[in-house]
């Protein structure tokens, strides 16, 4: 068959289709990022060719968050001679090839933070409005993944332009078209008709991936139990091990906290107001004149985990933990947010 390029259309394709999709994204002016295995780990970086893409499950050690929420950005410049403020916000054309369902959910969480409410953020919007997503469903669970507990994976059924699921014979992929743009990326491609067995294989592989998750966390009633567990002795136990290094918050796909500050270069002619990632693990984060909301490390560690497993639900109606497991991987003290949730709720 030949793909018509319509939203809702499905087919089975080979890996050669990836090259075509990548080429078409690039032709349309997108900088395309994907998960590449480098130095023994997966990272999101600009793709040379589709052959570089890692199909291994897990979305890499760092989330693609930096593409829509850069670690540091200039909000406006201030000309010190004229006193003029200049804010230049250019639309950014980026695409992600191989983003995983958990990271798509993290992106949707950030959409609510930055674009919801009375003050939509124009910097985020410029990077978000034109952001094609070619999603890889996860057919295996990583050691620290618990997306199936958080309801964010291993499969996705919304908010993708193209959705790709690896079937059980190597080199065969179920391709699902989720948008008009997704359609354009595959129009006229030669493909096999997707048969019932292919869908059955997809569902079985996703079910297996969920069933084989080695990390789990029951989320029923979790926010209330976390609130009641504010004084649980486990917080002391883990905060005694915590280095306060902020690795967990640095690799979290939903952390959005920031510092805003003025920076002047050596010419002394121009000042830039910048926004830079910040982390609740920093001592200065909760500092006010004459006090600190979270002076002790236990307060700061608890703030991070409570925000993910409790406060975010009150604020946005969803957990700002998508179960990607990166904070667990990166913790030098083996502190585990899923274990913490289980312990506080009494399931450990």
């Amino acid at each position: 068959m030949v793909l018509q390029g319509q939203a809702g259309e499905n087919a089975v394709v080979g890996r050669d289709a990836f090259d075509e999709i990548l080429a078409r994204l690039q032709e349309r002016g997108y900088a395309v990022y994907g998960t590449v295995n480098e130095k023994g780990t997966g990272i999101f970086r600009p793709l040379g060719g589709a052959g570089e893409l890692s199909l291994r499950c897990t979305g890499g050690t760092l989330p693609p968050k930096y593409l829509w929420y850069p670690p540091s950005e200039t909000m406006f410049t201030y000309d010190r001679q004229s006193g003029a403020l200049r804010s230049e916000i250019e639309p950014v054309k980026q695409a992600v090839f191989g983003i995983r369902p958990c990271d798509v959910h993290a992106l949707l969480a950030l959409d609510e933070v930055f674009l919801g409410g009375d003050y939509p953020d124009p910097y985020y919007r410029a990077r978000r409005e034109d952001l094609p997503l070619v999603v890889f469903n996860c057919v295996e669970s990583g050691d620290t993944c618990f997306c199936s507990s958080m309801g964010t994976g291993p499969g996705l059924d919304h908010d993708y332009d193209l959705l790709i699921t690896e079937l059980d014979r190597p080199g065969r992929f179920l391709l699902e078209v989720g948008s008009g743009l997704g359609g354009e990326l595959v129009r006229d491609l030669r493909a096999e008709v997707a048969r019932d067995e292919d869908y059955q294989v997809k569902h079985r592989r996703l079910e297996d991936a969920a069933a084989n998750a080695r990390t789990t966390l029951e989320t029923e009633d979790l926010p209330r139990l976390m609130s009641e567990g504010h004084g649980h002795p486990y917080w002391r136990e883990i905060s005694d091990k915590c280095f306060g290094c902020a690795n967990c918050t640095s690799v979290c796909p939903t952390c959005y906290c920031a510092d805003i500050f003025d920076e002047t270069d050596f010419s002394l002619t121009e000042t830039r107001r910048k926004r830079r990632w910040s982390w609740c693990f920093l001592m200065e984060f909760g500092a006010v004149h004459g006090g600190n909301f979270r002076e002790r490390r236990i307060d700061r560690l608890r703030q991070f985990m409570q925000h993910k497993l409790n406060f975010s639900v009150g604020q946005y109606g969803r957990f700002h933990c998508v179960g990607c497991g990166r904070c667990i991987v990166w913790c030098p003290a083996n502190i585990d947010i899923a274990q913490t949730g289980r312990t506080i709720r009494g399931d450990a």
Binding site: D118, A258, S278, V288, F293
Partner: peptide
Amino acid sequence: EGRMKCGIGKCGRCNIGS
């Protein structure tokens, strides 16, 4: 009070509970 950086609910600095 908090050491607020944005004032519009994005910088996270003045978060207490929800």
